[in-house]
Each structure stands twice: as structure tokens, then as C-alpha cells.
Nucleic acid binder design. Structure first.
Length: 290
DNA sequence: CACTTGACCTGTCCGC
DNA sequence: TGCGGACAGGTCAAGT
């Protein structure tokens, strides 16, 4: 679930909450959620103070004063929810998706020196949290392969074109989802930006005109920015650092709107399968190009 | 190579 | 109501 805007929202939330807090206890009840917990926890995590929280692609980075960092991937159903002395969740029935914590999806709990907790919940257990020396992180294969940040200042339409052409024989949707081409785009924002640019998701990259790529660039940045402004998309699991839902889906044009009418032309939105993923399009606005 | 499929998991929804 | 199967926003490895 969490794509760039969701992870950015969590990152901004945690950046307000975590720095200055010191880890006093760690609990992990699902080994794959924190594979190196066993080994590194006592020596490198307990006693460490959080100094910074950031994001790269769909991954969160929590830097500690020990020169180690936690890197966290939420995959499909991960949540990182902070709870201080009083619960934030119970008092916000409309905004909060999570109640009392820990709950049955809680995989890892970090406890801080003021008794506050960071809960890593993950229903499907695909997500993970790992501890590495901060200086080594950007040398990890995972980060070395990652494409540029679409919202960074030097990401231009020309750069998008250049990156897309690395896979010119593939469908544009498959390429947008490829994290080594551009970091952070997932199924929701791929569908939304392709609708915005009136591009059929099966269109091969090599068949996209320069004008279409420019349009895609504008639309992609716009949907990512709008979603960040709305706190991301909550379909079912995603919540921010306080356990609250994001509202972008209320603004989505095609995603999860099959059977409803296209806001641009009124045609009925359909759901198809592209690159093995559920894909939402307006069949009239997004004509297939071979 | 480049693309597709299966696997990792749990929960929900839909049809019989 | 119960049960089986398909499907869910991500990513890798393995297969074609």
C-alpha cells in the first residue's frame, strides 16, 4: 500500500515525534519483520537516540546517534504508529484506523525512555526493518539500484524521458512501477498519472511521444504532491504516524473507481490487468497504442 | 536479455 | 452460514 506519498507522510510525522527519544527496549515477535534484531539489538539499538527521520523511495530511514540507522519498508500493509503517554487512537473514531496497540498485526515494538512506543504493524508480514551502519546504507544494493526521486529539484521531464528509455520495449505502467527507473511510484499513482496524461498503460515506452512524456511528468508530480497534501491514500491498511487515515482516494480519478464515470469524459471506468497488476483506466480517454 | 509468474502472508469479499 | 477461490497497494527469485 504505502507508496511515496504515504511513506513521506509517515516520515514527516515521525520526524516530529522521534528525534531526541532514546530506545530502551525492543520486541519483535516475527523474525522476518526484523531479521537482524536478534544479533544487533543489544549492542547497537538499546540506548541509541533517534537523531533524524527521512525517506528514500518507499523506504523510511531512522538515524541514530550510534551511527547506525534503521531502514524500514512497509510493503503492502505495514504501519508505523507512535503512541505517547496517552493513546491518540481511541479518541479519534473518524480519523483513526487503529485502536489499542499492540494488536494482532504488531510485529515489532520499540520502547523509548519516556515510555512512549513505536509500533510496527504488518498484517501480511511482507514488510521489514533492519539495522545498518549509517555510512553503509547508500551502498546497499537496494539503494544503489534505486532510481531518482521524482519530487527532487533536478528531476525534469527530460530526465524522466531518459530514465523511461532504459526499458523502451516495456509497457509504460510496468516501467513506472520499476523502482530502478523512478523511486516511489506504485500502483495508485501510476494509474492516476497515466489517466491524467491520457496514456494507455499498455503503451510501449518507445511509442510515447515527447509530448506525452512531458504530460506524464506534469501529471505524475501533480498527483504525488496532491496526495502528500492529503496525507496519502488509505484503501484499507495505511495510516500515518499517529494512526490516522489519508484522504487522497477521495480525489482519485480512476483508482478503485471501476464502474463509475470518468470525471473528464463521463465514460465508465474499467479495471484491466497490466504488468500483472490491477489497472484502472478510462477506455475513451486512454486509447491503446501499440 | 526482457518479460511473466510464483512466492512471501493474512484478511476480505464474492459466488455457489 | 460455510467454503473455496480470487484478489489486495510491493518486491524478489525463478521460469519462459
Amino acid at each position: 500500500m504505502p507508496e511515496l506519498p504515504e511513506v513521506e507522510t509517515v516520515s514527516r510525522g515521525l520526524a516530529e515525534l522521534l528525534p531526541g527519544r532514546r530506545v530502551v527496549a525492543v520486541r519483535s515477535d516475527w523474525q522476518k519483520s526484523f531479521p537482524n534484531a536478534e544479533h544487533d539489538v543489544s549492542s547497537f539499538l538499546i540506548g541509541a537516540k533517534v537523531v533524524n527521520v527521512s525517506r528514500r523511495g518507499k523506504v523510511l530511514l531512522i538515524d541514530l546517534d550510534t551511527d547506525y540507522s534503521l531502514i524500514i519498508h512497509l510493503k503492502m500493509t505495514g504501519q508505523l504508529v507512535f503512541r505517547g503517554e496517552q493513546n491518540f487512537g481511541a479518541g479519534h473514531p473518524n480519523k483513526s484506523l487503529v485502536g489499542q496497540l499492540p494488536d494482532k498485526s504488531t510485529r515489532v515494538v520499540l520502547t523509548f525512555d519516556d515510555d512512549s512506543n513505536l509500533f510496527f504493524n504488518d498484517q501480511r508480514k511482507f514488510g521489514w526493518m533492519r539495522l545498518f551502519p549509517t555510512s553503509e546504507i547508500m551502498n546497499l544494493d537496494f539503494f544503489k539500484k534505486l532510481g531518482p526521486e521524482p519530487l527532487s529539484n533536478d528531476f525534469t521531464a527530460v530526465k524522466l524521458q531518459e530514465r523511461l528509455m532504459r526499458r523502451s520495449g516495456s509497457s509504460i505502467k510496468a516501467v513506472l512501477l520499476d523502482q530502478s527507473v523512478i523511486a516511489g511510484v506504485g500502483n495508485i499513482y501510476a494509474d492516476e498519472s497515466l489517466w491524467g496524461a491520457k496514456i494507455h498503460p499498455k503503451t510501449l515506452v518507445r511509442n510515447l511521444s515527447k509530448k506525452k512524456v512531458e504530460s506524464l511528468y506534469v501529471e505524475l508530480l501533480a498527483v504525488l504532491r496532491l496526495s502528500i497534501a492529503k496525507g496519502g491514500s488509505t484503501d484499507r491498511n495505511y495510516v500515518d504516524a499517529l494512526g490516522k487515515k489519508g484522504s487522497y482516494l477521495a480525489f482519485a480519478k480512476v483508482f478503485r473507481r471501476e464502474g463509475l464515470s470518468c470525471p473528464r469524459c463521463g465514460s465508465i471506468i474499467i479495471k484491466i490487468r497490466v504488468a500483472g497488476r490491477g489497472t484502472h483506466i478510462c477506455p475513451k480517454c486512454q486509447k491503446e497504442i501499440l
